[in-house]
Design a protein around this nucleic acid. Structure first.
Length: 374
RNA sequence: CCUUGUGCAUUC
């Protein structure tokens, strides 16, 4: 399982069962953990059902892993099922479990549920800690609810908790996303003055903020400042710059940055590809975008939902529905499940074409698949 | 014996 070879591990369990040995919670927990580490919620859930099926009673560790992996995958309904089930069998969720769920809802932008859980944990006498507050603050900042985020900061101080560099980074990111990079800089300078830990993430937040604002010079200045502090750029730092260059159509600069990161031992990933693909699409060169997708597959990269959505959207915007549908099928063949964004693109394309009948059919299909229209 | 939460990049 540690090596990622969960299938062989499961075979081994079958073998032990064939010899009359009965697996226990630890056996299943190890396997479930293996599936959690590879991000396979499906397999983890199957094993959970299997262990219940043979009469084992999953323990705190089992639920801890399952809630964690489902919350991280954004499958909050499932996570909540495990949360209820653990309590039904008499286990008491702690601050870590509550925070996993709160963070999951925050990332999905479902703040009312996040706060409900916060209230519930307090009622039950388990106090939110800095990590819990940070999860909530980050969720509020994503929604640009900066004043509420600041209020929570005040609240945590009143309760004897000290906002840390994660708290401040979230708030800085919120300001940047709102276009208030100056406010973010004020916080940043405050951190410098107070000797609060500064890391690459904080720089990335600012660099991204200034890039998105179109101020590439300031972004580069920050990058230099970061290097002066002996902090190394990571793959996200590179992605931010590559994305910005692609948006500006400066592809050769983007490609040379990509080479630079490879040389430094930072592997370009699917995000790097997606930025370039998106750039080609924006520049009206869908052909190059598709060529790049084929190239990435050949080099062993797996296009993801964002890769496909980018092309589907582009074809839809060009009212080229047949090409969009071709990509849609290619996506299904690749085993990538369409999401609301995919369907929205198709519906938009069909509406632009005036094909309301087909647009409605796609809309119905979306709902039938259990997806939530937005 | 096995598990553990918070911040940054790409589509909308």
């Amino acid at each position: 399982c540690i090596k990622g070879n969960v299938e062989d591990a499961r075979m081994l369990m079958k073998e032990m069962q064939a010899k009359g040995l009965v697996p226990n919670n630890a056996t299943y927990n190890v396997l479930i953990n293996g599936h959690c580490k590879e991000g396979s919620t499906r397999n983890a859930a199957n094993l959970y059902n299997e262990m219940v099926g043979i009469g084992l009673v999953p323990d705190f560790i089992t639920y801890n892993m399952l809630i964690n992996v489902h919350a991280k995958a954004g499958l909050l309904n499932q996570a909540m099922e495990y949360f209820k089930e653990m309590q039904r069998i008499g286990l008491v969720p702690d601050v870590v479990i509550y925070t996993m769920l709160i963070s999951g809802y925050s990332r999905e932008g479902i703040m009312n549920e996040a706060f409900k859980l916060r209230d519930e944990m307090v009622e039950r006498g388990s106090m939110p800690d800095v990590v819990t507050y940070n999860a909530l603050i980050s969720g509020l900042c994503k929604e640009r609810r900066l004043s509420e985020a600041n209020d929570l900061c005040t609240e945590m101080i009143e309760r004897g908790l000290i906002p840390d560099y994660v708290t401040i980074t979230s708030i800085m990111d919120g300001y940047c996303k709102k276009g208030e990079t100056e406010a973010a800089l004020v916080l940043f300078n405050g951190m410098l003055e107070r000797n609060i830990k500064i890391d690459v993430v904080i720089y990335n937040v600012l660099i991204n903020g200034f890039c998105k604002e179109g101020n590439l010079d300031k972004a580069k200045e920050l990058l230099n400042g970061m290097m002066e502090r002996k902090l190394a750029a990571n793959h996200i730092t590179y992605s931010i710059f590559i994305d910005e260059l692609c948006r500006k159509g400066k592809f050769s600069e983007a490609f040379s940055l990509r080479e630079e990161m490879s040389k430094k031992g930072i592997a370009p990933n699917v995000v790097t590809y997606n930025s370039i693909i998106n750039g080609f699409c924006q520049a009206g060169d869908v052909r190059k975008a598709e060529d790049l997708i084929n190239k990435m597959i050949v080099t062993g990269f797996v296009p993801d939902i964002i890769t496909f959505n980018t092309l589907i959207r582009t074809h839809c915007n060009e009212e080229n529905i047949s090409e969009a549908l071709r990509m849609f099928h290619k996506m299904e063949k690749a085993g990538v499940m369409p999401d609301v964004i995919t369907y929205n693109a198709l519906i938009n394309g069909l509406c632009r074409q005036g094909n309301m009948q087909e647009a409605n059919a796609v809309f119905e299909k979306l709902k039938k698949k259990g997806m939530v229209p937005n």
